[in-house]
Design a protein around this nucleic acid. Structure first.
Length: 410
RNA sequence: GGGAGAAUUCCCGAGUGGCCAAAGGGGGCAGACUGUAAAUCUGUUGUCUGACGACUUCGGUGGUUCAAAUCCACCUUCUCCCA
């Protein structure tokens, strides 16, 4: 390890807060450190926000440190109130177990778990069977409510109400850190910046119980230049699961990112050398699109693999640039029999799920936003016939950027 | 445990018997302008219908009324004040 990872992370703009900057840097520079990051399985896929944490894990792992990916099967039963204005929906144990299994699969793409190079644990293994009274006596004694109430993470909830179950979240996460410290010698906890209070809780707990020093570090949250959380679209989050967000859409998300965010994302979400990124930072105006293409390709490759990234790129080029192949575009199928006698455009689009309703389609046509094979649909009576399919396929464009390919199926 | 109040369409939030598919804002979508960017301007934003119009919606269940998001009863959830 020639370069200290701490410096790498800092240069790339990951670090938000560190408990003891000098000590942590020194530690990372001289020994193999076991560290952990927790992920609560509250949805059935990770999203781009989690991805940043995974990238950090990967950077750390490459530098010779040992990651513990903690799946919060126990903490997800409670729900983290940090930074939220409302309570999380309660999930059943089954849902959580399922979600956790999805997380595991996705993490493997970015972190190497082979040969014990990284460990995955589930805090449900120790949290779910805790005895209430012993937990209070062993762990609860170390926390003062006064201090907890002052914690930043509860602030937003002091106005709208904080239930007792959520209030306990901090204790559980702190206990996790203690547990991992004891079992694996884990002395560093990482997380998003919203986890700061929870991390400090764990560090305090380790000091009180073990008399030992532990460390914490948080990373910048992925936000746009306007401060909004990144990875949200009108359809919801941008997921890492290809069944929830197709690689094509995933690629497009990054391809369409704001100018102001490109460089930041390249630093945070790709492993391209900083020198190369710095050069891209000098690209201006239309040329910045080149940087966006690189970003989209690299990030897609990390999450979905090289092959899918190529496909997404090729489909995008086919649509926006001419050239490339249409094959990899989002595709819907239609039976030959349905087109035989002609089918109303709206029927077709609503039927294939490209549009949510016919009303939506009418609006689109009225506003001139629907295109069939690059010809604007002028009338609401437009009927699609076999003649509209060239080589068995037809391209529907909605607005400027949303493309769908429809193919005839025998 | 006692008292007060709230629940509205994607979100915030107006509406307190008919003029309400429901103000306003945000967001979304579309058009113009562009670089598959941002900003800006315009249109649009429950479903079905070519359109007139019809139908479903205002926490839940019943009720009053020619007519209910609006009134009554019960239920559920949440907030606040007192203990």
């Amino acid at each position: 390890m020639s370069t200290n990872v701490f410096d790498t992370l800092k240069e790339r703009g990951f670090i938000a807060q560190v408990t003891h900057e000098d000590k942590v840097r020194e530690l990372l520079g001289k020994e193999k450190v076991t560290f952990y990051i927790g992920f609560d399985p509250t949805a059935d896929s990770l999203h781009v926000g989690h991805m940043l944490q995974l990238i950090v894990m990967s950077h750390m792992q490459k530098a010779g440190h040992k990651p513990i990916a903690l799946i919060g099967g126990g903490t997800a039963m409670v729900g983290d109130p940090s930074g939220r204005t409302d309570m999380r929906k309660m999930l059943t144990r089954e849902e959580i177990a399922y979600n956790g299994s999805r997380f595991r699969e996705q993490m493997k793409r970015l972190v190497d778990f082979s040969d014990g190079k990284a460990i995955m644990v589930d805090n449900g293994d120790w949290l779910l069977e805790l005895n209430y009274v012993s937990f209070l006596r062993d762990i609860g004694v170390h926390f003062t409510v006064n201090r907890m109430l002052a914690a930043e993470c509860f602030k937003s909830r002091m106005e709208k109400g904080l239930s007792f179950i959520e209030f306990n979240y901090m204790l559980m996460q702190s206990y996790d850190f203690l547990k991992l410290y004891k079992d694996y010698g884990c002395k560093l906890e990482l997380g998003g910046d919203d986890q700061w209070s929870n991390i400090l809780g764990g560090i305090d707990l380790i000091r009180r119980v073990e008399g030992a020093e532990a460390y914490g570090m948080t990373f910048t949250l992925l936000t746009t230049s306007e401060g909004k959380k990144m990875g949200k679209t009108e359809k919801g989050a941008v997921w890492l699961d290809p069944n929830k967000t197709t690689p094509y859409d995933f690629y497009q998300y990054w391809r369409n990112i704001d100018d102001a965010d490109v460089i930041k994302c390249l630093k945070l979400l790709t492993f391209l050398p900083l020198s190369q990124i710095e050069e891209m930072a000098t690209w201006k105006d239309a040329r910045i699109n080149e940087a966006k293409k690189i970003l989209a390709y690299e990030v897609t490759k990390l999450v979905h693999g090289e092959e899918e990234a190529e496909k997404a790129k090729s489909a995008s080029e086919a649509l926006f640039g001419g050239g490339g192949s249409t094959e990899n575009m989002p595709t819907a199928k239609i039976k030959a029999s349905e087109v035989e006698n002609g089918i109303h455009v709206l029927e077709l689009l609503a039927g294939t799920g490209i549009l949510p309703s016919k009303s939506e389609g009418k609006r689109l046509i009225h506003q001139g936003g629907l295109t069939v094979n690059n010809e604007k649909v002028e009338s609401i009576d437009r009927v699609i016939t076999k003649a509209d399919f060239k080589d068995g396929e037809m391209i529907i464009r909605r607005g400027k950027k949303s493309y769908h390919r429809i193919v005839i199926e025998e």
